[in-house]
């Protein structure tokens, strides 16, 4: 009789432990990290999310990015931007309107270093295409004439373009996708997340993210400097990103709104950190075009920080990143003021 009672107690204690363990495991596992890889906006999107309903949140983020792509990609037939490019006048949604307004502001503040009416020029070059050829000089200068953000008119939700203008939001699309991701993360029960849209990052839920900046002279997985930053957005523009070769020459995808040719200066890449994905993306392109000196004012205006990597293998960072930057590759040197 006693033995039977004793067995019951042992089983009960073990069972109680198992139940407690199972509950703890359940709580932990519903907060486990998930990793997901998808394609949208012509880029790989990889998500690392920790928190309750991580899986559903990741799916929601992808559909929201695809929705955005369907509105703003000129490549997608009948997208808002495609229709605007075709008809030169169109009514756009509030979301697209606010993107255009914000980007026109960057166009203005960067004094046209980035210009959202660059569509026909990027189309003419078509860098990264299969049978790439360098366009004729005359064609380039003719196309460049129409690149002018000042001609874009906005009245209410009606946007009007100049006669030969086409909008290309390629310089801000990935960053915008990061903003969309952030909105969904904010509305979910997520403790930590890293959303990577083709190299642009949305960092969420931590104050000490370590971010490696790609070595512009190395391969995809090679980083040469690490910055430690709190949650926010990071984007890089570099001359290695999309490159075509013609007649033994290399042509990268960042086009100068001054010359109509790929930007040529002493920079290999510019990385911008700020509290908006759209801005981090657009500013990294603008700073790459402007060069170090002229970028500083622009960055200050948007309260953004940046890492500049020069072809002399020197690295310059803005004030806010000075104590947060660590060089990881001996070939490069952090520039210090005397």
């Amino acid at each position: 009789m006693k033995d039977k009672k004793k067995m019951t107690v042992i089983i009960a204690v073990s069972a109680a432990f198992l139940i407690v363990a199972a509950v703890i495991f359940d709580v932990i596992s519903s907060k486990t990290e998930i990793e997901k890889t998808d394609f949208a906006m012509g880029a790989v999107i990889s998500q690392k999310i920790t928190g309750r309903n991580a899986e559903e949140t990741a799916d929601e983020i992808i559909s929201s990015i695809k929705e955005r792509e369907n509105a703003i990609s000129w490549r997608i037939e009948n997208s808002e931007i495609a229709l605007l490019n075709k008809n030169k006048k169109a009514e756009v949604s509030d979301e697209t309107l606010s993107v255009l307004t914000e980007l026109l502001d960057v166009c203005q503040k960067s004094r046209g270093a980035v210009d959202l009416t660059i569509g026909n020029l990027t189309g003419l070059w078509n860098i990264g295409s299969e049978n790439f050829v360098v366009p004729e000089k005359d064609e380039i200068s003719e196309t460049l004439d129409a690149v002018s953000w000042e001609e874009v008119e906005i009245k209410g939700n009606i946007v009007t373009l100049g006669e030969n203008q086409k909008i290309d939001l390629g310089f801000a699309g990935k960053g915008l996708a990061c903003d969309d991701a952030k909105k969904i993360l904010d509305a979910s029960d997520i403790s930590e997340a890293i959303i990577n849209v083709g190299g642009s990052l949305c960092l969420y839920g931590k104050n000490d993210f370590t971010v490696g900046v790609r070595n512009p002279l190395g391969d995809v997985n090679d980083y040469m400097v690490v910055i430690t930053i709190s949650e926010g957005f990071v984007s890089t523009s570099g001359n290695y990103e999309r490159v075509s070769e013609f007649g033994g020459e290399k042509y990268h995808h960042i086009l100068s709104t001054e010359t109509g040719y790929p930007v040529e200066n002493d920079l290999l890449s510019v990385t911008v950190v700020c509290n908006s994905g759209l801005l981090s993306d657009a500013l990294s392109t603008a700073c790459y075009c402007l060069g170090y000196e002229k970028s500083l004012e622009l960055l200050e205006e948007y309260d953004a920080e940046a890492v500049f990597i020069f072809d002399s293998k020197t690295v310059k960072v803005t004030e806010g990143l000075k104590d947060r930057t660590e060089i990881k590759n001996d070939e490069f040197e952090l520039w210090k003021e005397n």
């Binding site: 990793e35 890889t37 394609f39 790989v44 990889s46 690392k48 890293i194 990577n196 190299g199 642009s200 990052l201 960092l203 993210f209 370590t210 971010v211 490696g212 900046v213 790609r214 995809v220 997985n221 980083y223 690490v226 990071v234 984007s235 890089t236 570099g238 990103e241 990385t271």
Partner: peptide
Amino acid sequence: EKVVIKVSGAKKGNEPDAIVY
């Protein structure tokens, strides 16, 4: 071609959380 290769596990401890490119 929509193909991705990803390597994970065996974290050495000093790798950054993410790479920006």
